[in-house]
Amino acid sequence: MATDAVRGARKVGRYSLLVFVAVVVLFPIYAVLLQALKSGPDAFDHPRSLLPVDLTLDTIRAAWTEGDLGHLLMNSLFVSSVVTVGVIVTSLLAAYAFAFLNFPLKGATFALFLATMLVPAEVTVVINQRTADSLGWMNSYQGLIVPSLASTFGVFLVRQVFLQIPKELREAASLDGVGHMRFLYEVAAPLSRPTLGALGLFTFLGTWNAYLWPSQVINDDEHRTIQIGLNSLKTPNDISKFNLLTGGLVVAALPIFIMLVVFQRQLVRGLTAGAVKG
């Protein structure tokens, strides 16, 4: 057995290592945050100072107005929330059918569902833009929302939980005259609440972060989301706004960082669901 001294030294070593790695991981975020919080000339010091002194919110404020970030954030929030609720509903319904009902070609249908997970968005985007156009959904919330309302991953996840609900429970309920929808609403859904929370968070993040599709379907200021809006701060024709990008990045990343801290457990559950149960 190690003596106290050795154990202490080991502890110090481990903490130093942890701190070192944490600094490396956080450095990019810190550097950008610092640049966003300094005024023009200070942000580009040479040699660069890494001390958090002389901070100002000017850059972030300028980015907020210049990039119309408040509006972009509201769009992202609205779209992500609707998609999240929608995905939960469609996943519950389909998962119920796969878990509790028997119907012809059930296996084939489920296989078809799973197969769609393999189709990369890169393949479908060109044609989907056409479809959205012919529906008159370019530059609209429908165009942003509807194509994302079904999630194979969600169906799969919820089905896994439903399969663990004893069949007898459903049979007993149906003898009592409880219909499918009521059973789903009153029994099955509440039992899978943790999974639904994880799925919701996961969907919200995915929609919030989406890049390719929103960039193809939206062409106006009214409906643009924050991820795409950031791009307009990247190469403004006007180089005097050179540093605004850092301010925009801080505003875009902050809500998600806060969410991560608050909902860390759900997030971990959502992310690991695929790994552990897959």
Partner: peptide
């Protein structure tokens, strides 16, 4: 199986419809 078919269809339609329009159809079209 047949008795369950109508509710199953109703419950699958949202997901199946969306996946058909936005994933399967564009794949075939591509």
């Amino acid at each position: 199986k047949l008795r369950d078919l109508p509710p199953a269809l109703l419950m699958l339609v949202p997901s199946l419809g969306l996946l058909t329009v936005w994933v399967i159809y564009p794949l075939i079209k591509a």
